[in-house]
Amino acid sequence: MTGDLLTSLNEPQQQAVLHEGAALLLLAGAGSGKTRALTHRIAHLIHQRGVPPWRIMAVTFTNKAAAEMRERLEALLGRDKLPWVATFHASCVRILRQEIEHLGYSSDFTIYDDQDQLRLLRELLKERNIAEKELKPRALATFIDNAKNRGLTPQACARLGVDDPGLIELYRLYQQRLKQGNALDFGDLLLLTVQLFEEVAAVRSRWQERFSHLLIDEFQDTNRVQYRLMQLLTGAQTHLCVVGDDDQSIYRWRGAEVSNILGFDRDYAGTRIIRLEQNYRS
């Protein structure tokens, strides 16, 4: 089976599939066959190294990318051997449905979309007698979203002391109202998962022990809270593989930190870096 998995790959892709040991940073631009290398690596782990599928977690950025990866893996492995493949946010929903009671929510929490968020913010502004011409709900939503992308709770914002105290207080009230309604917004999915892992050591250890292999695609697009989530999911025995393009970032508008990929090998000593430089689209 190893031969079958490797025959369609070039040499750097084969190296990525066969790598063992330290963290792996796969630098790959569009059209370089990175998804093929990633899916073949997962198939190799399951078929050749005997890693149970449930011990592998693969994280992507979009539902479309997750569906494509699942489809490719199903072709390689069959439907009954698929590992965990999901976006960051979908992964956090699955974790929180099982664990969020540790944070004082119930597992049947509601997830607010943008319109739900704006409706609640309008209510808060009205209650505080703040006219929308003075502070637009969407501007407040942007402030809150940016804070969450940086991994900052209202309390953390207050400690830093760099943001407007009035905005921070509205952020605090917004979070309070969400919790009263057993609701989370999109940013909370990541922020609360990070909070959960940071505050409840037993939960963090359980999830670290569950996954022996963590693979993250489009790593250049991770923001601070996503990078922190990766760190918290990575235990002493976790094999980490991240794939990204160090020359592009389509998610900067969501607070992506290109420094995450540029400084990855500083955070993970002994990282092996492999470049996929052959372009299959040109």
Rank of each mutant, 00 (worst) to 15 (best):
R79I: 08
H47P: 00
T62I: 03
R210W: 03
R228K: 07
Y251V: 03
W253A: 01
S107R: 06
V225E: 02
E218L: 12
Q15I: 12
H44V: 00
P12S: 15
G3C: 04
L9D: 08
G50Q: 07
L76Y: 13
V51K: 01
T238V: 10
L96A: 07
L160Y: 02
S8E: 12
R138M: 15
A202I: 04
P52H: 13
P52G: 01
C92W: 12
G31Q: 04
T142R: 13
R281Q: 14
W54S: 03
S212G: 14
V225M: 03
A202N: 06
Q15M: 13
E71S: 14
V59T: 04
L191E: 00
N279G: 01
L215K: 01
A139V: 15
D185F: 02
S32H: 08
A158F: 02
A201G: 07
G161P: 08
D185I: 00
M69E: 07
E218I: 04
F219Y: 15
A28M: 13
R204S: 09
R138Q: 15
A183S: 12
N260K: 00
Y171N: 06
D80L: 11
S91P: 01
L24P: 10
G166L: 04
G187L: 05
A141G: 07
F264L: 06
D267W: 14
E199M: 09
R254S: 08
L262D: 01
R228A: 12
E199F: 03
E101M: 01
A158H: 05
K148A: 00
G33N: 04
P154Q: 01
D116K: 03
I56E: 02
Q231D: 11
L9F: 05
R210T: 06
L121G: 14
T87S: 15
D265R: 09
L191W: 03
D116V: 04
E134T: 10
D265S: 15
D188M: 09
R36P: 02
L214N: 05
V17F: 10
I250S: 11
R122T: 08
A131H: 03
L45K: 10
M230Y: 03
G235W: 14
K34S: 10
L232A: 09
L118T: 10
R252V: 04
R138N: 14
Q98K: 13
T234W: 05
L233C: 08
A58Y: 02
E198G: 06
L9T: 08
K64C: 06
A23K: 05
Q248A: 14
A22V: 06
S91W: 10
F264E: 01
H239W: 12
D145P: 00
W84V: 02
D246L: 02
D145H: 02
A66V: 06
L45S: 07
T153V: 06
Y112Q: 04
L76F: 09
D265C: 10
W84A: 00
M69I: 11
Y171C: 02
P53W: 04
A201E: 12
L38M: 15
L191Y: 03
I274P: 04
T62R: 12
Y171L: 08
K179D: 04
A66H: 10
I130G: 09
D108N: 06
R122L: 08
A22I: 00
E68Q: 09
V243G: 08
F61C: 01
R275G: 07
F61N: 05
G151Y: 00
F143S: 10
E132W: 15
P83N: 05
L38C: 11
D217S: 15
I95M: 14
A67P: 00
L24Y: 08
S282G: 15
R281N: 15
